[in-house]
């Protein structure tokens, strides 16, 4: 074999460099007379001689100082018969000897939207999603309006949601333009609109769940769970369209972002929650009677079961109150 490729892996491992040699013998060392000059201070001035053989190379340590290791045996050796792909360690530098015919791994293809993410940007799907979302938004506005709104007013309410989706899609299109050189705005817009169109029914669903089990905690919990999961899934979609990040990393990144958002919101809620509220804070959600799950209690059962509100209405006396009573003595 006439040609030799040496892959140099520097001590910090991050930088790889390749050198090709045509000569039958290659000298390696820190000295400037070498064919391959290494800047590693642990390498001798003349360290190795690599001479071509029939099926590989003969590597000789000519320094007698720090020696030479062969990666696969991890022993100090004076001389070794190396094959393509073997690693030699001199000083703190690793050298991998390769023949030009050494096989390479198959090409890693750039992550590109396929399946659902590809189909979402087909014009017919885009228009269907937009129309569906528009209907969901208008219906949502209609259900929550306290007067009969004209179609124009309903539509302008729905436009608010569409605008939010537009802003979100633009951000991701920009990211895609920077990273992948392809904005994919239509795909991002479809994703964002679809996200909002699914978010509203899911939020409503959590209201119903909370109402039927009679617990504000359940309502909040399920809303956070549903919306968090939906947000993660759609954020993964946004990332897939806009970046080359691998699936595993996308999932990790999106789940982390969602968790951080939830954590910050929880923290803010508890930070700014009033310590004292002169009015009762109660769970006043009311839903139509079409889906009654649990049977009602009798008046007596209810009043017996809720006696604990009187017990927990007492709180431990604060030290300040104690101080007051002392000063009155």
């Amino acid at each position: 074999m006439a040609q030799l490729v040496i892959e140099i892996i520097h001590p910090l491992r991050f930088i790889k460099e390749y050198r090709t040699f045509d000569a039958p013998v290659v000298c390696v060392g820190r000295g400037y007379a070498n064919d391959l000059i290494l800047s590693d201070p642990h390498v001798s001035a003349q360290h190795l001689l690599v001479s071509a053989k029939e099926d590989g190379w003969l590597v000789k340590d000519i320094s007698g100082e720090n020696g030479m290791y062969v990666r696969k045996s991890a022993k100090v050796m004076d001389e070794v018969h190396a094959f393509s792909g073997d690693e030699i360690i001199v000083g703190r530098t690793r050298l991998r000897l390769l023949s030009p015919a050494h096989p390479v791994a198959s090409t890693k293809l750039l992550a590109s939207p396929h399946g659902f993410l590809k189909r979402i940007s087909y014009p017919v799907n885009v228009w269907s999603i937009l129309i569906l979302a528009f209907m969901v938004f208008t219906f949502h506005v209609h259900l929550r309006s306290s007067e009969n709104l004209s179609f124009l007013k309903l539509a302008s309410g729905a436009l608010g949601f569409l605008f939010a989706a537009l802003v979100w899609a633009s951000v991701w299109a920009f990211v895609g333009r920077m990273i992948k050189h392809s904005a994919q705005f239509v795909a991002q817009l479809s994703l964002s609109v679809l996200f909002l169109a699914l978010l509203l029914p899911l939020a409503t669903l959590s209201e119903y769940i909370g109402y039927f089990v009679n617990s504000m905690m359940t309502e909040t919990g399920s809303a956070v769970l549903f919306c968090g999961a939906l947000f993660t899934v759609f954020l993964i979609g946004n990332l897939t369209v806009a970046t080359h990040v691998s699936l595993r990393n996308r999932v990790v990144v999106c789940a982390t972002i969602t968790s951080v958002i939830i954590a910050i919101m929880t923290l803010l809620y508890y930070t700014f929650k009033d310590e004292f509220n002169p009015n009762p804070v109660y769970y006043a959600t009311l839903k139509p009677p079409f889906m009654k799950i649990f049977s009602s209690q009798s008046v007596d059962q209810f009043l017996t079961g809720t006696g604990k509100i009187f017990d927990s209405a007492h709180i431990r006396r604060t030290p300040k109150a104690d101080g007051d009573s002392k000063s009155q003595e």
Binding site: F276, V281, I309, S312, A313
Partner: peptide, 13 residues
């Protein structure tokens, strides 16, 4: 005064 403590349920009236 303390904060209000609340409970809620469906009751047959």
């Amino acid at each position: 005064v303390t904060n209000f403590q609340c409970d809620n349920d469906f009751v047959r009236v």
